[in-house]
Simulated scan of single mutants.
Amino acid sequence: MPTTHLVDSLVRAPYWLGSRLRRARMFHPRGIAFAARLHLTGEGPLPTGEHACLVRLSKALGTPGDLPDILGVGLRLEVDGEPVDVLAATCAGFDGWRRLVLWPVASWSTARLSSLMAWESEDGARAQVLMETADPGLPSPDVRALAHRLPVRLRVRVVGRHGDLQTGALVVEGPRVQPVDFDPVLHHPRGWRLVPDWLASARASAYDASRNARPDTVGPGRSVRAGRARGGSSSR
């Protein structure tokens, strides 16, 4: 439909231009990727047990040094050979609407992050990922400063309509690894999809435009295996 094409073009244009000018992602342009471990208990969209994964830590606007910014965590794990991506950014809080509002912070030490959008299962259940650091030794928002403090532990919650579905921890331990292009619209847990649909569609167009404009893109289907999972089982 013409209207759909127009909306798609309006979404793509600023992301393509911004990424071309920056020669990097329009948002979260500079980051550092590390090997990590994700451990979760409970039934939900993500695999239970302990799994090796890749984590990219970044600033959304790319402000220098200790200047505040919206902090980001990109998580990729592989289940049955397929990538699953989670992108979380610092939010205003975990209660109600606050987890839907991006919020700049001045430190990793008390960062609260949300996936903002939710997954929806085939039977209508919904889940959202929340992360939190609680480490007084991380007084700066600078990713490079955090890189010198590894291992870093983030509490992880996968929250449904009526409370926690899964709880656990993401342990960023290194070493540094080659980053990947995250795409949570394409790489979602099996049996779940990102909602609302209109926003997922717009987000997919933005990611595609950014990849096409950047010289450093590795493509949405490329992934880096962070190692072999040590125990645990997949819930999907």
Rank of each mutant, 00 (worst) to 15 (best):
M1N: 04
M1D: 08
T3A: 04
T4I: 05
L6Q: 09
S9Q: 11
L10E: 03
V11F: 04
Y15E: 04
W16F: 14
L17V: 15
R20H: 12
R23S: 06
F27L: 11
F27G: 00
P29A: 08
R30V: 11
A33R: 01
A33F: 01
A36C: 06
L40H: 03
L40Y: 04
E43H: 15
P45S: 11
P47G: 06
G49R: 03
C53G: 02
L54G: 00
L54C: 03
R56N: 09
L57N: 00
L57M: 14
L61G: 02
L61T: 14
L61S: 07
G62L: 11
T63P: 00
D66K: 14
E78R: 11
V79M: 14
G81H: 12
E82K: 15
P83K: 06
V86E: 01
A88H: 02
A88V: 15
A89Q: 02
T90S: 14
A92N: 11
A92V: 12
A92H: 10
F94L: 13
R98S: 10
R98F: 07
R99F: 00
L102W: 06
P104E: 06
P104G: 05
S107W: 13
S107F: 11
A111C: 12
R112G: 00
M117T: 13
M117N: 08
W119V: 06
E120P: 00
E120R: 15
S121E: 11
V129E: 01
V129P: 00
M131I: 11
M131Q: 05
D135P: 09
L138K: 06
P139I: 13
S140D: 04
D142I: 15
D142L: 08
H148Q: 15
R149P: 01
L154R: 02
R157W: 07
V159L: 08
G160W: 11
G163M: 08
D164G: 01
L165S: 00
L165F: 07
Q166L: 09
T167L: 07
V172W: 01
E173W: 05
P175Y: 09
P179W: 03
V180R: 02
D183N: 15
P189W: 01
R190V: 12
R190P: 05
L194I: 12
W198I: 15
L199V: 15
A200K: 10
A202C: 13
A202Y: 00
A202N: 08
A204K: 13
A204S: 09
S205T: 13
A206F: 03
D208Y: 05
S210I: 06
R211Q: 10
A213Y: 05
A213T: 07
T217P: 06
T217K: 07
V218T: 12
G221A: 13
G221V: 03
G221S: 14
S223R: 04
V224I: 15
A229R: 07
A229K: 04
A229P: 12
G231R: 13
G232Y: 06
G232D: 05
S233P: 03
S233H: 13
S235R: 14
